[in-house]
Nucleic acid binder design. Structure first.
Lengths: 203, 203
DNA sequence: GGGCTTTCGCTACGAGTCGTAGCGTAATGC
DNA sequence: GCATTACGCTACGACTCGTAGCGAAAGCCC
């Protein structure tokens, strides 16, 4: 509109290194202190920046932790193991290994809890964490239908509901197993889960 | 050992009415303020007791909210609708209606998040919330096996793993649907979910 | 180089919460 | 009546929060 620069404004640019340091310090503090005892002052000290810099970039603890935890899910990829069962097992094991990290365990549920009373926060979580997971379900489902391992669905609205159902079942089961039952989602558990899920979807 | 009184000690007994008032005030504060802005001083004022009385009975916010939320799950009952599918749908709908309450949404996930770093708190949640839900799975499964709707299992160890798997799938899916996806677990969703689950368990 | 704009580090501050201590009083059992 | 315990109230130091104000630094454009 009124500027040729990609970011629009002139002046001193924000330090990208500071962003990375702050998010890393946030995860470190989550491991050492947990959600409730984590303070922004402590994160600032760990990151080597001033507390005011933190408040200039994030509205508060909630938003900061969402961004810090979201980076953990960047590693999620849909493997191509040849069969739908093997693909699901692979992706679920990846998901479980992330949820086994202390920084994910402490932070993720806490921000989800806060999001029950904060629509903007829930939208932020959806965009940076949930949708990235759901995309894997969509891809895996499309691939399985191409292979003939899952029945194709004509009605797009009904297909969307099915994807949502699968997603809630997969993510919900792994999260509940890991964080509520507090037992590891190891290979044996994942195999049993995948067997039940696939048989249930075979109709 | 050294006393005939049921509670062991003499002196002024604790007011049972105060307990009820405090837990009710806690749920009220959860609705009005949410987890993060809930303070014990505010709860004490709402309940009409002194703040020190709260600290004499509960170690802190975590334990208080666990007890306050746990009472919400007292209403859970296993219906006998004639078929396993109908029983599951009934219990899941009950569970979903509890999770739709603001006091449950705000409090439950928050204490689960705190429990990731506090073994005693996790044990408290398990005893007063989770086990009560899991008992329904055990009962429903036994009833269905007696009806012949589910295959019997010989190995008790394998049966225990199956119950744990079912429990994590049911509770996890409903919680994820309600709190993460933030969409209602209505009758249509519950029917689809039950269909997938039952077909998956039919082997 | 000079000027403009934005960010950064630092300090300080009022407001609010935490969890506890101390005291006098109320309620129960013996 | 006496011992024991619970209760209400007040006050307190310690801590965190989020913001304001300042001078200095780092980049863009002429």
């Amino acid at each position: 509109m009124h500027s040729r620069s990609p970011s629009g404004r002139s002046g001193r640019p924000r330090s990208a290194a500071a962003d990375a340091a702050i998010l890393a310090a946030t995860r470190e503090a989550l491991v050492d202190l947990g959600w409730s005892k984590l303070t922004l002052g402590d994160v600032a000290t760990r990151a080597g920046v001033a507390k005011t810099t933190l408040y200039r970039r994030w509205a508060g603890k909630n938003e900061l932790v969402v961004d810090a935890v979201a980076e953990l899910f960047d590693a999620l990829e849909l493997p191509d193991c040849g069969s739908l069962a093997a693909d699901i097992e692979g992706v679920v094991l990846q998901f479980a290994s992330i949820l086994a990290l202390p920084e994910a365990r402490s932070g993720l549920m806490a921000v989800v809890a806060e999001a029950t009373r904060d629509d903007a926060l829930r939208e932020r979580i959806r965009a940076s964490v949930v949708d990235r997971q759901k995309r894997l379900v969509l891809e895996g489902r499309a691939r399985a239908q191409a292979r003939g391992e899952l029945p194709a669905e004509d009605d797009p609205e009904s297909a969307a509901r099915t994807v949502d159902l699968i997603f809630d079942m997969v993510a919900g089961a792994v999260v509940h197993r890991t964080l509520v039952s507090a037992e590891p989602a190891d290979e044996e558990w994942v195999r049993s889960f995948t067997r039940v899920l696939l048989q249930g979807l075979g109709s």
